[in-house]
Write a protein that binds this DNA or RNA. Structure first.
Lengths: 226, 226
DNA sequence: TCTCTTGTTGAACGACCGTACAACAAGAGA
DNA sequence: TCTCTTGTTGTACGGTCGTTCAACAAGAGA
């Protein structure tokens, strides 16, 4: 496969030239391809499968390309982590803000309910990302740069959630420690997701969603219809 | 250090023989030493530090000893995981049972409160074990043998917790889904512990304990004094 | 003191790791 | 069509990995 194909390629009498052996991509495009391939390796085999050989094979490129586009393999790992963090947390915040901006006449409980439900959508509440998040957490605990990124993103998400909680509480004249409740809610979601990933017989995504709503409703009253 | 010491060792005229180059241990003792050293490596450097060289150096033995006492490095990893699982989960269950057996005249809420509090004791609610648990969870997701061990232990712990919850609920004439509440409580504890490990500014162990009690008290009534 | 069992050692091996780098060629612009 | 830029390739290298195994020696029993 790596061998140059001699027959037909250099032939003068033939009509066609040999097909290109590879295609050139813009640096940004290739970087994204490598980050996605690396994330796939990480999610399937954990950090043990995060090697130059496997990632390049997964991306369909040669061994030298990672060190051309990234300072090192660790640099790629950091990019994968950043990408995962932004993809999950930032997206949820952006969606919440968009909902509130587009439909400013929504009742506060509708915005909060939508934000709660998004946590349990298959896109986020997915077993696929377990190994990525486990190694990501392990790296956050060790790498100050990632710790800072994690702190900022989670603070932003927690603040967004607390804001939505407070809006409901204020309207209903309830005394609620919104930041603490938001923090506990996130912990509950993470814990339930983890339990579900490790043993799917313990809890279903539906039961997890119900538990999440129950925690909030115990303090701010009903959030769901019916 | 690895060099044999020629002077003084083989000397015939001297009074003393050379000191032993190593000490022989019973297989069980040596296995435990290796498991503990391996756990130390894992907790400090994550799965990346789980290598023959580092573990043997940590244990103060030669490179060949791991493969003598364990079928492979993976076999040692499984033993470390089993040891961690049993040490944390089984201990809590045993303590709970012992409390109930020794002091059968305790009110049910005292037993439940003690079980709740044990989760937040420094022994368990410790940042030291983060990297061990992250890699352990990653292995549980992949290794059927460990998945089974995890399921059994967590089922037992959840059942113990649910039993204590139900005892309080029955005495107080409250309708409670004890198994679901126990499952949610464990998820909350795991989630808060994780948040605390990753960013200690988010929550303190005291606040985490308060959140745990609040979740239970919302359904079964007061559990703490005052 | 001697013998024997067996826990322990440490070198050797092949496999795989991440990185560096010289050669190559794709494709845009002249 | 030709030139030049630069994305891409693939080999080579030193280091580390897990495993094997022949030799060694600690220490109990005779």
């Amino acid at each position: 496969m790596t061998e140059a194909q001699p027959e037909g390629a250099k032939r003068k009498g033939g009509a066609k030239k040999a097909p290109p052996r590879f295609s050139r991509e813009q640096a940004d495009v290739r970087r994204s391809m490598l980050i996605e391939a690396a994330a796939r390796c990480l999610s399937v085999g954990g950090i043990g499968a995060f090697t130059i050989d496997r990632i390049c094979k997964e991306a369909g490129v040669s061994r030298g390309l990672i060190n051309h586009h990234f300072e090192s393999l660790d640099g790629l790992l950091v990019e994968v982590y950043k990408s995962s963090l932004y993809a999950s947390v930032n997206n949820q915040i952006a969606e919440a803000k968009r909902r509130r901006a587009e439909t400013s006449d929504w009742p506060p409980e509708a915005a909060l309910a939508a934000l709660v439900q998004s946590n349990f959508a298959p896109e986020y509440f997915s077993r696929e990302n377990l190994l990525i998040w486990l190694s990501l957490w392990g790296e956050i605990a060790v790498n100050p740069r990632l710790k800072e990124a994690h702190r900022e993103l989670y603070d932003a998400y927690r603040a967004e959630l607390a804001e939505d909680i407070a809006a409901v509480a204020v309207q209903r004249d309830k005394q609620v420690d919104a930041p603490a409740l938001a923090r506990n809610f996130i912990a509950l979601v993470d814990g339930l997701w983890l339990e579900w990933c490790l043993d799917e017989s313990v809890v279903t995504p539906q039961a997890a969603e119900a538990a999440g709503f129950e925690m909030l409703e115990a303090q701010v009253g009903p959030l769901r219809d019916s």
